[in-house]
Deep mutational scan, measured.
Amino acid sequence: TRVETATETAWISLVTALHLVLGLSAVLGLLLLRKQFPAHYRRLRHALW
């Protein structure tokens, strides 16, 4: 049972790390898009919101 708990903890930390990386890359991508293609960014924002 101890090994299972350790594996679960590892999976949870892995998933958390993946979510963090995905969130950060999404934010960075949006910032880059905003900087380089303001028109595209505006259109995207209108489409999303």
Rank of each mutant, 00 (worst) to 15 (best):
1 T>H: 03
2 R>K: 05
2 R>W: 13
2 R>Q: 10
3 V>W: 00
3 V>K: 00
3 V>L: 03
4 E>Q: 03
4 E>S: 07
5 T>E: 06
5 T>G: 02
5 T>P: 01
5 T>W: 02
5 T>M: 10
6 A>I: 03
6 A>Y: 08
7 T>I: 08
7 T>M: 10
7 T>P: 11
7 T>E: 04
8 E>G: 10
8 E>H: 14
8 E>V: 05
8 E>S: 07
9 T>M: 06
9 T>G: 11
9 T>R: 03
9 T>E: 02
10 A>Q: 09
10 A>D: 12
10 A>E: 08
11 W>R: 11
11 W>I: 05
11 W>M: 05
11 W>Y: 11
12 I>S: 05
12 I>E: 02
12 I>D: 00
12 I>W: 00
12 I>Y: 11
12 I>L: 05
12 I>M: 15
13 S>K: 13
13 S>Y: 11
13 S>E: 03
13 S>I: 11
13 S>N: 05
14 L>R: 05
14 L>C: 05
15 V>A: 05
15 V>Q: 01
15 V>M: 05
15 V>R: 07
16 T>Q: 06
16 T>P: 00
17 A>T: 07
17 A>S: 04
17 A>K: 02
17 A>R: 01
18 L>G: 05
18 L>F: 05
18 L>A: 11
19 H>T: 08
19 H>L: 15
19 H>W: 14
20 L>Y: 04
20 L>V: 15
20 L>C: 07
20 L>K: 01
21 V>E: 03
21 V>S: 07
22 L>T: 08
22 L>N: 01
22 L>H: 00
22 L>I: 11
23 G>A: 05
23 G>I: 11
24 L>K: 00
24 L>P: 02
24 L>C: 03
25 S>I: 10
25 S>Q: 00
25 S>D: 00
25 S>F: 07
26 A>T: 03
26 A>H: 01
26 A>E: 02
26 A>R: 02
26 A>F: 06
26 A>N: 01
26 A>I: 13
27 V>N: 03
27 V>T: 05
27 V>P: 10
27 V>Q: 04
28 L>V: 14
28 L>A: 15
28 L>N: 01
28 L>C: 14
29 G>Q: 01
29 G>T: 07
30 L>S: 08
30 L>E: 00
30 L>D: 00
30 L>C: 12
30 L>P: 08
31 L>Q: 07
31 L>S: 08
31 L>V: 14
32 L>D: 02
32 L>W: 06
32 L>T: 12
33 L>Q: 00
33 L>M: 11
33 L>W: 12
33 L>G: 05
33 L>R: 02
34 R>S: 09
34 R>K: 12
34 R>P: 07
34 R>L: 15
34 R>M: 11
34 R>Q: 08
35 K>I: 10
36 Q>F: 15
37 F>W: 13
37 F>M: 12
37 F>E: 02
37 F>C: 15
37 F>G: 13
37 F>P: 03
37 F>H: 04
37 F>N: 08
38 P>A: 15
38 P>T: 15
38 P>Y: 15
38 P>D: 10
39 A>T: 09
39 A>L: 08
40 H>K: 06
40 H>V: 12
41 Y>C: 14
41 Y>T: 07
41 Y>Q: 09
42 R>V: 08
42 R>Q: 09
42 R>F: 08
42 R>E: 11
42 R>W: 08
42 R>D: 07
42 R>M: 08
42 R>S: 10
43 R>W: 09
43 R>T: 03
43 R>Q: 14
43 R>C: 08
43 R>S: 10
43 R>G: 07
44 L>A: 03
44 L>F: 04
45 R>N: 05
45 R>T: 09
45 R>D: 03
45 R>H: 07
45 R>Y: 06
45 R>M: 12
46 H>F: 09
47 A>E: 05
47 A>M: 11
47 A>I: 11
47 A>N: 06
47 A>F: 14
48 L>Q: 06
48 L>P: 04
48 L>G: 03
48 L>Y: 04
48 L>K: 04
48 L>H: 07
48 L>N: 01
49 W>V: 07
49 W>M: 13
49 W>P: 10
49 W>F: 12
49 W>K: 14
